[in-house]
Design a protein around this nucleic acid. Structure first.
Lengths: 193, 193
DNA sequence: TTAATTTCTTAACTTAAGTTAACGAGTTCC
DNA sequence: GGAACTCGTTAACTTAAGTTAAGAAATTAA
């Protein structure tokens, strides 16, 4: 279980045994059940999440409707905006599957990072990478139609389409569930020909 | 001119005179003319940008059409994905106005950061903040209609609507220029009532 | 300053997403 | 086991974005 984490970290920095032990001693591994809620709208929090196994999502409740905007799966991290801004969260975070997470809080991070400055470097490298990738994703979203987005997802993250309920997938694609159904039927029809 | 930068940095860390001088000695200030191109599709680069004054945009050329996906104005930073991935860029970057920039390359950053580990901390804090904000922006985009996006932009970044050509604004909002024109006319009509 | 080019707007038409409603197939909960 | 709910799909209808085209306005280049 730890190995998943250390393999991931090794992509950015190399760790000594001492540093590995420091991480393990933090007791940040958390196992969550499907459906469990990590953060609620209106709530304040200092916790960041890193998914080792499973899947979590962020969603808003707008006009009584859930709008799922993002999924985080293996080796993806999320620091909610409320952690940065110290304001109540605008969105919910919950587990779509049984999920194994790292949960860290900002105090803990500051402490460890000041003890091991190397972690600052890792965080910098990791977030620069995620930032640049997010931009590409956002750009792609802006420049394509719902149908193209769906086909694109089918290529790049076929697993998501399997593991996520359709209605969540729909709002992730920026459309209504009925439109996703129709769009899928349209694609099937084309494929037949 | 430097003060703009140091004021900004002071939001994250405090700098000694030595550290300030180290930054200044890097010779990273660049003044660009309106229309100048910073990065082209297909090109490799190690340069990151930080806008001190003016405005730059990123755009793709798809089917011979320019698709502008992002604008960066005062105190906003961009590290292109090609810098991270070491692959040719998928998008262009150019100046919409006469622009004053910091241009840093990754070697330079590594050197300075290793000399002043404090900079790693700053980069970590800054990118964590930008990352969390980008997520909110993306979420907002997904959960709203083109018209809502435009009204939202009118609230949050009225300056952009002034300084940016309509057709660039349209693709930034994920629609065609004709749709933006129509949408604006629709809003005007509503306002009249 | 004029000519050329690009930009913005408007209009008519097409296409697809939003909306509302209905139905069958699971799920969850008494 | 049955009732209440939720989920995914389909259909009919509404609304708005995409497309094509044309003309006026603004920019740019000669």
């Amino acid at each position: 279980m730890q190995n998943i984490l250390f393999d991931f970290i090794s992509k950015y920095i190399s760790l000594t045994e001492e540093e590995k032990n420091a991480i393990l001693s933090l007791d940040i591994f958390r196992s969550m059940k499907k459906g469990a809620t990590l953060l609620k709208e209106g709530q304040k929090s200092n916790d960041s999440y890193f998914v080792l196994k499973g899947c979590i999502r962020t969603y808003y409740v707008l006009d009584g409707e859930e709008k799922t905007t993002a999924f985080y799966t293996e080796m993806e991290a999320l620091t909610p905006y409320c952690v940065i801004s110290k304001t109540p969260s605008q969105y919910f975070i919950s587990c779509i599957e049984d999920t194994l997470l790292l949960v860290t809080n900002s105090d803990m991070e500051e402490r460890v990072n000041s003890q091991f400055p190397k972690f600052d470097i890792m965080c910098r490298l990791f977030s620069a990478e995620v930032l640049a990738k997010n931009k590409i994703d956002f750009d792609e979203f802006k420049t394509s139609s719902p149908e193209q987005r769906y086909l694109n997802l089918l290529q790049k993250r076929p697993d998501l389409i399997q593991r996520v309920p359709q209605r969540q997938l729909a709002s992730y694609l920026g459309i209504k569930p009925e439109s996703l159904s129709r769009l899928r039927a349209r694609i099937m029809e084309k494929d037949k020909k």
